[in-house]
Simulated assay, not measured.
Amino acid sequence: MFKRLISSALVFGMAAIAPPARAQNCAPREIVVERLERQFNETLSSAGLQSGRSQDVIIEIWSSSQSGTFTVLVSHPTGLSCMVASGHDYFIVPEHKRRNDPAS
């Protein structure tokens, strides 16, 4: 009985401190960037800073105009980047001129 209790506590304790499932799509940023550039011919299209509770992260969109693929990364200050989305048929929405813009 005591052996089962200790085993159960150990298993549940390990599960509680394990990283989230999405962390499996994470790697050092330089490795992720190199793969996106070499394997998918993607380049950085846009990025922005997202303020979080514990730390700020950079949201990056990498894309390829040749293949139409794209990848969304979340890059942490620790140097770790996580792929959160990817797909195909990427397109850029052109900026619309403002109605009051004298140049329009």
Rank of each mutant, 00 (worst) to 15 (best):
R4D: 02
L5Q: 14
S7F: 15
S8F: 08
S8W: 15
A9E: 09
L10C: 04
V11I: 15
G13K: 09
G13F: 08
G13D: 10
A16V: 05
A16S: 12
I17T: 08
I17M: 13
A18G: 06
P19S: 10
P20N: 03
A21T: 10
R22I: 13
Q24I: 15
Q24C: 05
N25H: 13
C26M: 07
C26Y: 10
A27L: 07
P28Y: 11
R29E: 13
R29M: 14
I31W: 15
V32G: 00
V33Y: 14
V33M: 05
V33P: 01
V33D: 01
V33Q: 05
R35P: 02
R35M: 07
L36A: 01
L36R: 00
L36N: 00
L36I: 02
E37T: 14
R38H: 11
Q39C: 04
Q39G: 03
E42Y: 03
T43A: 09
T43R: 13
L44W: 12
S45G: 13
S46H: 07
G48N: 12
G48M: 05
L49G: 04
Q50I: 15
Q50W: 11
Q50D: 03
G52E: 08
G52P: 07
R53W: 00
R53M: 10
S54C: 10
Q55M: 06
Q55N: 04
Q55Y: 07
D56I: 12
D56Y: 10
D56A: 14
V57T: 12
I58V: 05
I58Y: 00
I58S: 00
I58A: 01
I59M: 09
I59N: 01
I59V: 15
I59R: 09
E60H: 06
E60T: 08
I61S: 00
I61F: 03
